[in-house]
Amino acid sequence: MGKIPKELTRLTFLSFLNLSNNQLVGPIPSGPQFQTSSPDSFKGNTGLCGFPLNISCSNTGENDNVPPPNPHRKEEAIEWEYVSVALGYVVGLGSILWLLLVFRKFRHKFNDQTEQVFEKIFKPKDRKKEQRGRVNRRRYC
């Protein structure tokens, strides 16, 4: 013995539901699936009441107001554009890290290049002095 779950009214993909001979009791929930069912779908459940059966549920005192499904609700889908961008970053970064870990020659060249870039950024005064010294050396050679 049990009641028909009110959550069944939210299942919009059901076209036919036969609940006969299940020893169900209580009111039949009001929803699109149950409003279109025939009384034969509930046959053999002597404790059921409400539409589409001709049995009134005035004594139950239950409120079976379940909100109908929202037809404007969008199904959440995967945004493949973002997935492909993230995958590109992962592959690019993974390739560089793999090269740095596996190839010693590449690692040393990479470290030298990054060191030069940082020196150019963080030591602009020293760079001007070095350039003057290089110019003077070229003139005397």
Score class of each variant (00 low, 15 high):
Arg107Phe: 00
Arg107Gly: 00
Pro39Val: 14
His108Leu: 03
Lys3Asp: 01
Ser15Val: 05
Phe122Asn: 11
Arg132Pro: 05
Phe34Val: 00
His72Lys: 07
Trp80Thr: 05
Val90Gln: 08
Glu7Pro: 04
Glu75Gly: 02
Thr9Leu: 01
Glu79Gln: 06
Gly94His: 14
Lys128Met: 09
Lys128Trp: 08
Lys109His: 06
Lys128Leu: 14
Asn21Leu: 09
Lys43Arg: 12
Asn111Ile: 10
Arg134Gln: 04
Phe51Asn: 07
Thr46His: 06
Asn63Phe: 03
Phe42Glu: 13
Ile78Ala: 09
Val102Lys: 02
Pro68Thr: 01
Lys125His: 10
Asn65Ala: 09
Ser56Asn: 15
Thr114Ser: 08
Thr60Ile: 06
Lys123Asn: 06
Leu11Asp: 13
Leu11Thr: 13
Arg132Cys: 06
Ser20Glu: 08
Ser37Phe: 06
Pro29Trp: 00
Glu62His: 02
Lys3Glu: 03
Cys141Tyr: 01
Phe16Arg: 10
Ser38Arg: 04
Thr12Gly: 15
Ile4Asp: 01
Glu76Lys: 03
Arg137Val: 07
Cys57Asp: 04
Gly47Lys: 05
Tyr140Lys: 08
Glu79Pro: 04
Phe34Ala: 00
Gly92Ile: 02
Glu62Asn: 02
Thr12Met: 09
Gly94Asn: 10
Ser56His: 12
Thr60Glu: 07
Val83Ala: 05
Lys3Met: 04
Arg104Ile: 07
Pro5Leu: 00
Ser20Ala: 14
Val91Glu: 05
Leu48Lys: 12
Phe13Ala: 15
Ile96Tyr: 13
Gly50Leu: 11
Arg132Tyr: 12
Pro69Phe: 07
Arg132Leu: 12
Cys141His: 02
Gln33Asn: 01
Lys105Cys: 02
Ala86Trp: 15
Asp126Arg: 10
Asp126Leu: 11
Lys6Val: 00
Gly94Gln: 13
Arg10Gly: 05
Gly92Asn: 02
Asn18Asp: 06
Phe110Asp: 10
His72Met: 07
Phe13Gln: 12
Leu101Phe: 10
Glu7Asn: 06
Ile4Thr: 02
Asp40Leu: 10
Thr46Gln: 08
Glu76Met: 03
Gly26His: 03
Leu24Phe: 09
Ala77Pro: 13
Ser84Trp: 05
Tyr140Cys: 07
His72Phe: 08
Ser20Gly: 11
Asn22Val: 14
Cys49Phe: 15
Pro27Phe: 07
Val117Ser: 01
Ser41Ile: 00
Thr12Phe: 09
Val90Phe: 10
Gln35Tyr: 04
Asn45Met: 07
Gln131Met: 12
Pro39Lys: 14
Gly47Val: 04
Arg138Leu: 14
Phe13Lys: 14
Leu24Lys: 04
Asp126Lys: 15
Leu14Tyr: 13
Leu14His: 10
Pro39Trp: 15
Glu75Ala: 03
Asn18Thr: 02
Pro68Tyr: 00
Ser30Ile: 02
Ile55Phe: 11
Ser58His: 15
Thr12Ile: 10
Ile55Thr: 13
Ile55Gln: 14
Glu79Trp: 04
Leu24Asp: 05
Glu79Ser: 05
Glu115Pro: 12
Lys43Tyr: 08
Arg137Ser: 10
Thr36His: 11
Leu24Gln: 06
Tyr89Pro: 00
Asn63Ser: 08
Ser30Gly: 01
Asp126Thr: 13
